[in-house]
């Protein structure tokens, strides 16, 4: 019984992390039609930079912010000078951005080495919380859930309730007409792409504090983020939320109940879902 609840918390907190990464990925696809497989590398880079900042300043919050901010110029340059050349060719985008991810991974290996590194968390988040019923669970994971909910809510409000959000949604509907009614869509792309980079970089720091950072971590997390996006529907923010919860919970219960089949527990339901809803839960046709 207790373990069941523990797994639920595990799953939801992992979901919070996955949402940070998947939301940016899915928004940039929805608006710009770009599949950016370097998102995992943004996560790793942001994480390492946040780690360095946290070590030097002693502030985890600064680390999270700095890790996110540092990825923005990186993402901008990659968008502007590399991805833009691929036009709407998704295969070219995938190959290009996988290549970029490998390069970034090597650069990170050179700078931060091959050991697995843990972002130091502030003292207040290091302990554990005792829940009614005698369940003890790390404080950090609860803070992560709160952070994920906060970011999710902010993004949702931005996307659904503001005029900038309406412009982004309009761009998802019909980019050409958005520009024909007087909106500089390139400027919008830069904004959304910066937001996606920021979220991925932040996710790296937040995730690096409990999953640690190491060469290859970018691909592991990317696979999860892709499954989230496939579950939820490419391009849908609400889909990324629901998808993250499903994947987080499936992963947690899979590892607990069927440890030998934990990947199957993730990919099996995904395959079944795709049979019935090829565009995911919130996916749209067209």
């Amino acid at each position: 019984m207790h373990s069941g609840i523990l797994q639920a918390i595990n799953g939801v907190s992992f979901a919070a992390l996955l949402f940070l990464l998947a939301s940016g990925f899915t928004l940039s696809f929805g608006l710009m039609r770009v599949v950016n497989m370097a998102h995992g590398a943004y996560y790793l880079f942001g994480g390492y930079i946040g780690l360095t900042i946290t070590r030097h300043t002693g502030s985890f919050a600064l680390g999270v912010l700095g890790g996110g901010l540092a990825v923005i110029p990186l993402g901008y340059l990659i968008d502007r000078f590399l991805i833009r050349r691929t036009g709407e060719n998704h295969l070219a985008q995938v190959l290009l951005t996988v290549g970029i991810a490998f390069v970034l991974g090597d650069v990170a290996l050179k700078i931060w080495g091959g050991d697995s590194l843990k972002v130091p968390t502030p003292i207040e988040l290091r302990g554990a919380i005792e829940l009614p019923g005698g369940i003890i669970y790390p404080t950090y994971r609860f803070a992560l859930i709160a952070f994920g909910v906060f970011v999710g809510l902010s993004l949702w409000l931005l996307y659904r309730k503001t005029q900038i959000g309406a412009v982004v949604r309009a761009g998802v509907d019909d980019r050409e007409i958005v520009s024909a009614i007087g909106i500089n869509i390139d400027r919008l792309f830069v904004l959304v792409s910066a937001l996606a980079s920021f979220l991925a970089g932040m996710a790296g720091v937040v995730g690096g504090a409990f999953l640690t950072l190491y060469p290859g971590a970018e691909w592991e997390i990317l696979v999860y983020a892709l499954v989230v996006v496939i579950f939820g529907g490419l391009g849908s923010l609400e889909g990324a939320m629901i998808g993250a919860l499903i994947v987080g919970l499936l992963d947690a219960y899979g590892r607990w109940l069927l440890p030998e089949f934990s990947y199957f527990v993730l990919f099996g339901p995904m395959a079944i879902l795709l049979l019935f809803r090829p565009r995911g839960i919130f996916g749209r046709e067209g």
Binding site: Q163, I164, A166, V167, R169, D173, G182, I183, R187
Partner: peptide, 16 residues
């Protein structure tokens, strides 16, 4: 996927 109001207000957004 935008409301009628949002459709109408889009050309007046800061980005436009």
């Amino acid at each position: 996927s935008l409301s009628v109001r949002e459709n109408l207000l889009l050309p007046t957004s800061v980005l436009a």
